[in-house]
């Protein structure tokens, strides 16, 4: 177990290092990152001065080492627009995104997993077919389209809910649903597959043969075993929700890091964008490590094999 944990952590470190490198490479893809940071009408002297000031005139490998060194000190550079550390700007917006992602996760799990259970246990029924159609629909509607649809129905037409901002708790309802819809479909699909896989196993037949009802078998035994693949999905979905926030927050003017990312691209504040990409990727890596460790705890079979 300890060995496995250490191994997995090293893997995660390699992944994080790789992410840092890829983001560094992308930032230098345009040839000269200085050009990303200045207004389009900047004079040549201004560009040259900033290039020197930010150290972009040094050899690329020096810049790379400097960049890594800065990151170990939690120095992500200064926002060129606001003249404060980029990390502080992102940190001030982060609570909103966490709040929104939590709401979306609640929608996704709260509706997705029960739907998956129903679809798996009532195969061939009309309810299953209806739910299956809803799941494919949820997968095929772009998040911004469902967002606009919600705004049109509940905001513009019925005027039940505010269409933008984060001033009141009610404002969270629509963005959470819009952001969670895609994950909901994923949860429904995955829990359905996991449960159907389990239902085919001998212990289920044995339980049914001894007179347990299908409901009892599912709730006492099957769900516990079927939860393992679903945990992995949940971990990956957290990362996906944070990434999806880029679009949803823009549509609903929700002041989280997703909206900040797009605003920063528009104002050419690339160091802020870089912090956001790195942050969400870290969360992605960390949640997948946690998922792996959690299911070693949940499932003793995995522990024994390792």
């Amino acid at each position: 177990m300890l060995n496995y944990t250490v191994q997995r952590l090293i893997q995660a470190l390699v992944a994080i290092f790789g992410v840092l490198t890829i983001v560094f490479v992308i930032m230098h893809l345009s040839g000269d990152p200085t050009l990303l940071l200045v207004p389009q009408d900047a004079s040549a002297e201004m560009i040259a001065e900033l290039r020197h000031q930010l150290g972009f005139d040094r050899p690329i490998w020096v810049q790379y080492i400097d960049y890594l060194h800065g990151l170990t000190q939690l120095d992500f550079g200064m926002s060129v627009v606001q003249r404060v550390p980029a990390l502080d700007i992102v940190a001030s917006r982060l609570p909103y995104t966490i709040q929104l992602a939590a709401g979306a996760l609640m929608v996704a799990i709260g509706i997705g997993i029960p739907s998956g259970i129903i679809m798996a246990t009532m195969r061939g029924s009309a309810i299953e077919r209806i739910l299956a159609a809803i799941v494919v629909t949820g997968q095929s509607v772009p998040t911004f389209l469902s967002a606009i649809l919600l705004i049109f129905i509940f905001g513009v037409t019925l005027r039940w809910l505010p269409t933008s901002g984060a001033s009141e708790l009610r404002a969270m309802i629509m963005p959470s649903i819009a952001l969670g819809a895609l994950s909901m479909s994923t949860f429904a699909r995955m829990s359905r597959i996991a449960i159907i896989d389990e239902l085919g196993k001998d212990y289920v037949r044995a339980g049914l043969a001894r007179g347990l009802s299908l409901g009892q078998t599912v709730f006492r035994h099957v769900l516990r075993n079927a939860s393992i693949p679903v945990i992995t999905i949940a971990a990956l979905e957290i990362g996906n929700l944070l990434a999806g926030a880029v679009i949803i927050e823009t549509v609903f003017a929700w002041p989280g890091i997703g909206q900040l990312a797009i605003q920063s691209i528009q104002s050419r504040d690339f160091l802020v964008v870089q912090v956001i990409v790195l942050l969400i990727s870290f969360v992605y890596v960390l949640t997948s490590v946690l998922a792996d460790l959690v299911y070693v705890v949940v499932d003793p079979r995995i522990r024994l094999v390792r």
């Binding site: 983001v23 964008v273 870089q274």
Partner: peptide
């Protein structure tokens, strides 16, 4: 390993960053 790394950056973010650059 490169696959693992690429898959730990959400695709939409990677695309947003690259297109912006």
């Amino acid at each position: 390993r490169l696959v693992d790394i690429m898959m730990s950056i959400p695709a939409i973010l990677l695309a947003v960053l690259t297109v912006a650059v």
